[in-house]
Simulated assay, not measured.
Amino acid sequence: MKKLFTNNPTEIAEEINSLITNKGALVCAKGGTSDKMKKLPLVAKSKSSAGDLMVILHPDHPCDSDKCSFYYATAGAPLRYFEAARVKKAKQFLGLQYPTEIYNVFRRKSPRVQTARKSTITFSILHKQRVYSGKVVDISLNGAQLSIDLPAQLSTGDTLCALSFILCSRLLADYEETITLAEAKIVWIQTEEERNHTLGINFEPDDNARDALENYINLRKIEDPKDFAT
């Protein structure tokens, strides 16, 4: 799953320049290539009539198209992904335009299913006493997407506490699976209006919560197999 990290040209330039300064490497996203061919060190910044270029070392670059896709990782940040146009190629080096968008990539530990009807959640924010509520959009064994309406400012990395999910069935009107968790971390957040937040959380359930989640996920796979998202 990927979420937009930035499409701001200044922020993109700062991100790419930091990668070059810190001698980072890109990983080619093209399938069917060896790890040795995929890992491509960023060696310099250059310029062309098309604008700033990042220069990568490519002893045998697997991308043979005009636009190449890459992943990279930095300490303390999610895996990130971008596409960049190939501008120059010379012997051991490849010149790529700076991307127009960079995405955060989140790897799910387990498949995720859409929740049904009015599946809800209540929770509090670490060091705050007020209890908030919202809708559960989808859920897996290790995470969920929530839609909430609250005035509090939230940020990536914030901790939610005392979470209580009520997960509903589409076909069984009286079915409710209640699951409680001690805490969860916000891994991404989108604010559509001043109070309206869509956010992704990660958590590590205990054995009881994991069993309940597995039961619910299996039920939803039977009810709506088309909504079973891997």
Score class of each variant (00 low, 15 high):
M1N: 12
M1R: 13
L4C: 06
N7Q: 14
N7C: 12
E11Y: 07
A13K: 12
E15N: 04
I16T: 00
N17G: 05
L19V: 01
I20C: 10
A29C: 09
K30M: 10
G31K: 06
G31Q: 07
S34L: 12
K36G: 03
K38S: 15
L40V: 14
P41S: 11
P41G: 13
L42M: 15
L42Q: 06
V43H: 07
A44P: 04
K45T: 04
S46D: 09
S48Y: 07
S48C: 12
S49R: 11
L53T: 00
M54R: 03
M54V: 15
V55Q: 05
I56K: 10
H58K: 13
H58A: 15
D60H: 03
D60A: 03
H61C: 15
H61P: 11
F70V: 06
F70H: 11
Y71E: 08
A73Y: 07
A75G: 00
G76A: 05
A77F: 09
P78N: 08
L79H: 02
R80K: 13
Y81N: 02
F82D: 01
F82Q: 01
A85N: 10
K88I: 07
F93V: 05
G95V: 00
L96W: 02
L96S: 01
Q97C: 12
Q97R: 05
Y98W: 01
Y98P: 09
E101Y: 00
E101Q: 01
I102H: 03
N104Y: 06
F106R: 03
F106P: 07
S110I: 08
P111W: 04
P111L: 13
R112M: 07
T115L: 08
R117Y: 02
R117L: 02
S119F: 08
I121L: 14
T122E: 13
S124D: 11
S124Y: 02
L126M: 09
L126A: 11
H127L: 09
K128L: 14
Q129D: 15
Q129W: 04
V131N: 05
Y132Q: 09
Y132E: 14
Y132H: 14
G134S: 13
V137D: 10
D138I: 02
I139T: 01
S140E: 09
L141E: 15
S147P: 01
I148Y: 02
I148D: 09
A152S: 10
Q153G: 01
L154H: 05
T156W: 00
G157T: 00
D158C: 07
T159E: 10
T159R: 05
L160P: 01
L160G: 00
C161G: 01
C168M: 13
C168W: 01
D174W: 06
D174H: 08
Y175F: 15
E177P: 03
E177K: 12
I179R: 10
T180R: 13
T180L: 06
L181M: 12
A182G: 09
E183L: 04
A184D: 06
A184T: 03
A184S: 08
A184K: 03
K185Q: 14
V187Y: 05
W188Q: 02
W188R: 10
I189F: 06
I189S: 12
I189Y: 04
Q190C: 12
E194I: 10
H197K: 15
I201M: 08
F203W: 13
E204D: 08
P205R: 09
P205G: 07
D206P: 05
D206R: 03
L213W: 10
E214M: 11
N215Y: 05
Y216V: 10
N218R: 11
L219G: 02
R220L: 03
F228W: 08
T230F: 14
